[in-house]
């Protein structure tokens, strides 16, 4: 019963894909999911800095995408969806829900090198010391690759504020991270 879009999904915008998704086109949803799964995951992982919470937030964000489908006004899907993702992460961070560990997440990954694990821990510790709004802006810019304007739309602040937050976050991160990563020869 699944509808199939006759147009190649790569040619369609996010807005078009979501409209097709709302009409039951599973191919359109799959294309949209592939576009966003990595960005959402990176955001959840590096804003929440907790793997279990991030996995929950990842699921919850896509569930909310479905639940909030009626409130989508047909414009700028990216900003609308990332606003949902952001709210989910901020709520989870506030509530710090106790969750069942996602046992398969690490088991299925290729074994990481010791240096990668240590480096990952250093990054997590350093990011954890940034103010949440600075961290959020930095993650959206450096990890997800969004522009200042897009970050301003998602977070609801001005472009100037976004620029300042990212610059300060970089500076603080350099101060925190550089001595432990490079001076210790990780």
């Amino acid at each position: 019963m699944a509808k199939k879009s006759t147009i190649r999904s790569s040619e369609l915008s996010d807005d078009d894909l979501f409209c097709l998704t709302q009409n039951g086109d599973t191919e359109a949803f799959n294309a949209l999911f592939r576009r966003y799964e990595r960005k959402v995951y990176l955001y959840c992982m590096r804003v929440l800095l907790d793997e279990d919470l991030a996995h929950d937030a990842f699921q919850e964000a896509f569930m909310r995408l479905y639940e909030h489908r009626r409130s989508y006004d047909g414009r700028n899907f990216m900003v609308w969806f990332f606003t949902i993702v952001r709210n989910v992460c901020l709520n989870m961070r506030r509530n710090k829900k106790v969750t069942v560990p996602f046992e398969t997440s690490i088991a299925n990954e290729a074994p990481a090198k010791i240096t990668d694990v240590v480096l990952n821990e250093h990054i997590v510790v350093a990011l954890n010391q940034l103010p949440i709004d600075h961290r959020e802006a930095l993650v959206l810019y450096e990890y997800d690759g969004y522009s200042y304007q897009e970050i301003a739309d998602i977070t609801g602040v001005s472009i100037a504020t976004v620029k300042i937050r990212i610059f300060r976050a970089r500076k603080l991160l350099r101060t925190l991270l550089y001595p432990v990563v490079y001076d210790n020869g990780v």
Binding site: T26, F29, N30, F58, F62
Partner: peptide, 18 residues
Amino acid sequence: PPTDLAEHVRIAVGSSFE
């Protein structure tokens, strides 16, 4: 994202839309 997590979410949400 872990493959099984992503697949599970994709199928669950996609089928809900459908």
